Simulated assay, not measured.
Amino acid sequence: MPDARMAKSLIVTGGSSGIGAALCRLAARQGWHVWIGYGEGSDRAARLADELNFEDRAARAVALPLREPDRLREAVARIAEKDSSVSALALCGAPAPDVASLLKLTPEHFRNQHEAAVVGNYVLLTEVWRRCFRPRGGGQVVAVLSAAQGPPTTPHMASYVAAKCGLEGLLNAAAAELGRAGLRIAITRPGYVETPMLNAFERLLLERARASAAGQAFLKPEAVAAALLHGLNNPSATQEIVELSLDDGATLERAS
């Protein structure tokens, strides 16, 4: 990975598959140096890095397990030591949703989701700020939230929805405290996306969801990645969080 101060580098969580992998491909092909973060998908991340490097793109796989704060800190320290051009962080990684009635979920379901979405992303964001963004005078964060948060809130996804709402609260706090120092944040809220996360849902539930989509297909991960990349390539001039439209992958709206 080149360490050119005039270059731009991006760290992506969940970069081994789904939306994260799609973003790594799109960003690398537009000149970004990409750090492909993974939790359990080390082989997939390595193959993606090989694919992009074969195309003369700059990519490297890095373990970013969101439930292991110490390993996150160590990883960011290594990245900062090797690459002074990190200017953006994409929060695409998340555990698959626990699809069950609120009354059947357990505290462990909520704990697992919260540890990754809130605690893990808190550690990652603050470490990247201290080691990468602050020395540059600022940086960008883009994050994948969820249409399941509502309104209306999607039923039978309580632990996942609570974690995404927690992540949104974390981002609001980061913007309030670090916005004046140069942190810029954009979010998107996709609905169903054609990724391996759909395996968490029962087939009949997905069939009903597809039938209720009024003839519209589920989103492709490339569509969400295109919206995220547009946000990275067009950072907001304000400190307020902006929302990235998925209608055309290009519209920026102020988050309410």
Rank of each mutant, 00 (worst) to 15 (best):
Leu198Gly: 02
Met6Gln: 15
Ser87Val: 11
Ala96Asp: 15
Val118Gln: 05
Trp35Asn: 04
Glu115Phe: 08
Ser87Leu: 08
Ser85Asp: 07
Leu23Ser: 06
Lys82Glu: 15
Glu240Pro: 00
Arg136Glu: 09
Val123Glu: 13
Gly15Thr: 04
Val34Asn: 03
Ala58Ile: 09
Leu244Ala: 05
Leu219Arg: 12
Pro65Tyr: 12
Leu145Met: 12
Pro235Phe: 09
Gly39Ser: 12
Ser159Val: 02
Gln149Glu: 14
Asp70Val: 13
Glu240His: 08
Ile36Gln: 03
Pro135Gly: 07
Ala162Asn: 07
Glu202Asn: 10
Val161Cys: 06
Arg131Ala: 04
Leu204Arg: 15
Ile36Thr: 02
Phe201Met: 03
Ala22Pro: 00
Ala162His: 11
Gly249Ile: 04
Ser9Arg: 06
Glu222His: 00
Gln113Leu: 02
Gly249Trp: 13
Leu183Arg: 01
Leu66Ser: 11
Arg111Leu: 11
Pro107Lys: 11
Ala173Met: 09
Arg25Asp: 05
Asn233Met: 14
Arg73Gln: 13
Leu64Tyr: 09
Lys104Cys: 01
Val12Tyr: 13
Ile185Asn: 03
Ala59Gln: 05
Ala181Phe: 12
Ala116Gln: 15
Gly20Tyr: 11
Leu26Trp: 05
Ala88Trp: 14
Glu68Met: 13
Ala63Ile: 00
Leu178Gly: 05
Leu102His: 11
Leu252Ala: 12
Glu194Gly: 01
Pro95Ser: 13
Arg210Lys: 14
Leu124Cys: 06
Arg71Met: 11
Val161Ala: 01
Val141Trp: 15
Phe201Gly: 06
Leu48Asn: 01
Ile19His: 08
Tyr38Asp: 02
Pro69Gln: 13
Ala211Met: 03
Gly137Ser: 09
Lys82Leu: 12
Asn121Arg: 12
Gly215Glu: 04
Ala200His: 13
Met197Cys: 03
Val141Pro: 08
Ala162Ile: 02
Val99Glu: 13
Arg60Ser: 07
Ala181Met: 12
Leu206Phe: 10
Ile185Phe: 07
Ala175Phe: 04
Asn233Trp: 06
Asp3Trp: 08
Arg67Cys: 06
Glu81Asp: 12
Arg203Val: 08
Arg25Phe: 03
Ala7Pro: 02
Leu178Met: 10
Leu91Glu: 09
Gln113Cys: 07
Arg71Asn: 06
Ile36Tyr: 12
Ser16Asn: 08
